[in-house]
């Protein structure tokens, strides 16, 4: 035990960059940096959320009709998938902290699996919308599917879909980047890079992963669950 501890500390010392006084400062600094980065990310999505709120307030009915087209079962499944992935991610960070690199690698691999699961389901949804001409642009065509209630305002429903594609697309892009980062952790983990004295990359990627998850927690009700009552 004692020898492995010394080995851990050596790994940690190799990871200490020249401009920090000690590991504590380095860890503190990198986690602070990550929080600042997430702040930037919030503002990045914030612009889209703001556009969404403005248009939803002005063209509520058109947004309701658009959201009727969402596949709630797939959306809810995806929400569950992401929440599970956050759990395995959190457990993975914990495993790294406890000095169980093998467990960490397994948990991170499950996280990656969940990530691909999410993207796969999202792709099915995208395909459905694409087939139904629910992609903004010259080929956009919108019908409620209920002859008694024709589309009241297809023009603004198109804006709903523009925002839908932009927001979920940007989110999916973040997922892809996230999967890449977790894969990098897996490789580094296999090479024995992380110890209880040095695991801040795992922690930071974890923070990122939870953030991306959190964005979806907002996107799901905003886009899928606008109103069932005003339905058609």
């Amino acid at each position: 035990m004692a020898t492995s501890d010394i080995g851990d500390i050596q790994v940690a010392e190799r990871a200490l960059q020249h401009h920090f006084a000690d590991m504590e400062q380095q860890r503190d600094t990198s986690s602070f940096g990550m929080w600042m980065f997430l702040l930037t990310e919030i503002m990045f999505f914030g612009g889209l959320f703001c556009a969404y709120l403005v248009y939803r307030a002005s063209y509520y009915q058109a947004f309701v009709e658009g959201s009727q087209k969402m596949n709630i079962v797939l959306g809810a499944t995806n929400t569950a998938v992401l929440i599970c992935s956050s759990l395995t991610m959190a457990l993975g960070v914990r495993a790294a902290q406890m000095g169980k690199p093998k467990l960490m690698v397994i948990l991170l691999l499950i996280t990656i699996l969940f990530g691909f699961g999410f993207l796969g389901i999202k792709a099915v949804e995208y395909h459905e919308h694409w087939e139904n001409h629910e992609f903004p642009g010259p080929n956009f065509h919108f019908e409620t599917g209920n002859p008694a209630h024709p589309a009241s305002d297809p023009q603004h429903t198109q804006i709903y879909f523009s925002l839908y594609w932009a927001m979920t697309g940007l989110h999916a892009l973040h997922m892809v980047i996230g999967i890449g980062l977790v894969a990098w952790l897996v490789i580094a983990g296999l090479m024995g890079a992380y110890t209880p004295h040095y695991y801040n990359p795992v922690e930071n990627v974890g923070l990122y992963w939870h953030f991306v998850d959190l964005v979806w927690i907002y996107l799901f009700p905003m886009l899928y669950l606008i109103s069932k009552k005003h339905g058609v």
Binding site: A51, Y55, S58, P136, P138, H156, Q158, I159, S162, A166
Partner: peptide, 14 residues
């Protein structure tokens, strides 16, 4: 690029 209408008034944007 895609003629989506978030800002274009002809497509209902503001």
């Amino acid at each position: 690029a895609f003629h989506i209408g978030v800002f274009n008034p002809q497509l209902g944007g503001d």
